[in-house]
Simulated assay, not measured.
Amino acid sequence: MSATPQAARPSAPAFRGRIGRDARSGHYAVPNRYRLHLTTACADGLRIAVAHSLLGLADVCPVTFLPAVPDRADGGHAVLRPLYDAGAHRYAGAALAPVLSDDWSGRVVSTHAPDITRDLAGRFGGCRTDLYPRGAESEIEAVERMCAEGVEDAAQRAGAPGTGPGERARALETLRTSLNALDRRLDGRTHMLRDQITAADVELWVTLVQLDTVHRHHLDATTVEHLAGRTALWSYARRLTARPAFGRHLDLDAISRRHQARCEGLEAAGAAVQILDWAAHTAADATAVRTADTR
């Protein structure tokens, strides 16, 4: 298993092993062999946690929840360090979450969130929820790209320190255009694709959570007002938040603390305008899931 130091390629996953169909893959699908290490305060961890719940894998692949704010000076989690060290000799990067680990070997299998979600669904998903229905893969990937590039990246560029007026204007235009397109697609629809929850819904819901709880703080009031007017999008977000598989993993306080600990963006007038009252729409059993945060 090879590893890529985070310092050398910060955008690359440190480990990218896959769960295969049989023993020849090295990591083959066996119930209770693998474990997830997640913080739902980060977008990737929240996506995996929601998918894990939708798939009903609590008795197949256990989850260890981590603090919202890592406890090591390098930005990593001390509890994950032995897994990283076992997975790559003299690994120099930070021990970051999310992690899919192999309890048999005590090593990291993967830190690549999209692969982790796809392997959980494809190797252990059964028939409870089909997150990747046959024939929908390209549509799901298109939604993932729009969320990543058109919303997340654009919002980050718009609020990054040192961004010039022209670049900021282009980023804001990309953000508005992307959300307008998503809003039109959801008008009169319950889900993004077909008539069922898919991985596209998990992706978009987490993107909207991040937009309102993190990126909003760095957008001007006019932009936030425009985004709040995408009524189909936010009605959709409310509906999904009320579902236990989504809302029970939403820890607004943890997201806020992680944002405050890591944020280098510019504060803007949009910070005072909350688009959605997430707590009011969270399912009644939201307290069932708690992170291991120590305040």
Rank of each mutant, 00 (worst) to 15 (best):
S2P: 11
Q6A: 05
Q6R: 10
R9T: 10
A12Q: 06
A12G: 00
P13W: 14
A14F: 04
F15D: 05
F15P: 01
G17M: 04
G17N: 08
D22F: 03
Y28H: 15
P31C: 09
P31K: 09
L36F: 15
T40S: 03
T40P: 04
C42T: 15
G45H: 13
G45N: 13
R47N: 13
I48G: 12
I48M: 12
A49G: 02
V50E: 10
L54P: 08
L54N: 01
L54D: 11
L54S: 12
G56N: 07
L57H: 15
L57P: 08
P67H: 13
P67Y: 08
P67F: 00
A68V: 07
D71P: 04
A73L: 06
A73Y: 06
A73S: 04
G75T: 14
H77I: 13
A78E: 15
L80K: 03
P82H: 02
Y84C: 00
D85Y: 05
A86G: 13
G87Q: 04
A92C: 12
G93P: 14
A94Q: 11
A94L: 09
V99Y: 01
L100G: 02
L100D: 07
L100Y: 01
D102N: 03
V108N: 01
V109S: 09
S110K: 10
T111F: 07
H112M: 09
A113Q: 02
P114C: 01
I116T: 05
I116F: 02
G122Y: 00
F124V: 08
G125Q: 08
R128Q: 14
L131Y: 07
L131G: 12
P133L: 01
S138E: 14
S138P: 01
E139W: 01
I140E: 03
I140Q: 00
E141K: 04
E141T: 08
V143F: 11
R145S: 13
A148C: 09
V151Q: 02
E152H: 04
E152Q: 09
D153T: 12
A154N: 11
G159D: 07
G162W: 04
P165F: 09
G166R: 06
G166C: 04
E167N: 10
L172T: 15
E173V: 00
T177C: 04
L182F: 11
R184T: 14
L193T: 11
L193G: 01
R194S: 07
Q196A: 06
I197E: 08
A200S: 14
A200H: 10
V202S: 01
V206R: 03
L208Q: 02
Q210K: 02
Q210V: 04
T213V: 08
H218S: 05
L219K: 03
D220Q: 03
A221V: 08
A221Q: 10
T222F: 02
L227F: 04
A232E: 09
L233Y: 13
W234E: 00
L240N: 01
T241K: 10
T241Y: 07
P244S: 02
P244G: 03
R248F: 05
L250F: 05
D253P: 03
H259A: 02
H259L: 00
R262A: 12
C263M: 02
C263A: 03
E264C: 09
E264I: 13
L266T: 15
E267G: 10
A269L: 06
A269E: 15
A269Q: 15
G270A: 12
A271K: 14
A271C: 06
V273L: 11
Q274C: 01
I275L: 05
L276W: 08
A280L: 07
A283M: 10
A283D: 15
A284C: 12
D285A: 12
T287D: 14
T291L: 00
A292I: 03
